[in-house]
């Protein structure tokens, strides 16, 4: 019996980012408007597998999801043993811009979740003429840490176990068990110190609530979508961010947590499709 392949295709490419050759893994599916997907801190692009497989999306969009260096199937740069991984605003912006230019993406939509949702707002401010629209899932311009990051990388605590245990608080209790645990499995597989290094950007380096009012949403529309059960980027924080970004559109997604695309893909689709259709119709 022949197997039924999923529609996405995975490929590797090497990109020089800030002087380091980085071997990057990406998956893509579909044709049309480029839709670049950015995974959450400590996870990888597998979170977007349902969107990559959905013909309602891929009939209009070329969906691309890549693993950041150090994540998933993307390698850390050569010599990674000599330094601790730490993501910064500037470093993260550079990676995304370099990937967009390397893949020759024309007027892409960027949809990021969590730290990906934060960085898209930075990109909207920086280069509104290049990007078609930004979708910030669980992304805010101001956040506050609520646990000590040192717990995430020490020899007497299992990194994978504690990462999953921390973020399980951010999954909605009504999300299907299968997808809850698939989402947590990704966290159990992260490299040592990588989630901690991502949270440096997410919690400590990513605030820009003083500059977010400068985003021109006429040049680059911004959609902010937050799950009801997200205890990190809460609906309140998302709505506060929306109040600062004039012209942005905010949605609170009932029955969803911090990982909409992977913890409850069917429910998330009901929120995402109207946004994607609006973007597609504006392009037509």
């Amino acid at each position: 019996m022949a197997v039924e392949f999923e529609p996405m295709k995975g490929r590797y490419f090497t990109l020089n980012i800030a002087g380091d050759d980085c071997r990057i893994y990406m998956e893509e599916s579909g044709t049309g408007i480029p839709l670049l997907c950015l995974h959450t801190a400590g996870s990888d692009a597998r979170q977007f597998r349902h969107i990559l497989s959905d013909p309602d999306v891929t009939s209009r969009f070329r969906v691309i999801a890549f693993d950041l260096p150090w994540h998933g199937k993307s390698n850390p740069p050569k010599g990674f043993r000599d330094s601790d991984y730490k993501l910064t605003v500037d470093g993260y912006k550079r990676i995304i811009s370099d990937v967009c230019f390397a893949l020759d993406l024309q007027s892409p939509v960027v949809m990021g979740c969590s730290m990906g949702g934060r960085i898209v707002c930075h990109l909207a401010l920086e280069n509104p003429a290049y990007f078609r629209a930004m979708i910030a899932l669980e992304g805010a311009d101001k956040l506050e840490p609520y646990y000590n990051l040192e717990w995430l990388h020490r020899p007497d605590v299992h990194g994978g176990e504690i990462q999953a245990a921390f973020v399980s608080s951010q999954v909605a209790p009504t999300s299907p068990d299968e997808y809850r645990w698939e989402t947590l499995w990704h966290y159990m597989q992260g490299g040592p110190g990588v989630f901690k290094g991502d949270l440096h950007f997410y919690w400590l380096d990513g605030d820009f609530d003083e500059r977010s009012p400068q985003i021109d949403t006429k040049a680059c529309p911004v959609y902010l979508m937050s799950g009801e059960y997200d205890c990190s980027c809460t609906p309140e924080r998302t709505l506060e961010t929306a109040s600062r970004i004039k012209g942005s559109k905010a949605t609170v997604m009932t029955g969803i947590g911090h990982f909409p695309m992977s913890e409850n893909p069917a429910l998330f689709k009901t929120y995402l499709m109207p946004v994607l259709l609006e973007i597609a119709n504006n392009a037509a």
Binding site: Y146, Y147, S169, Y229, C231, S232
Partner: peptide
Amino acid sequence: PPRDYHDLFAMLP
């Protein structure tokens, strides 16, 4: 459970 009460680490912050 309602939001904010659904997990120990949702109650914590």
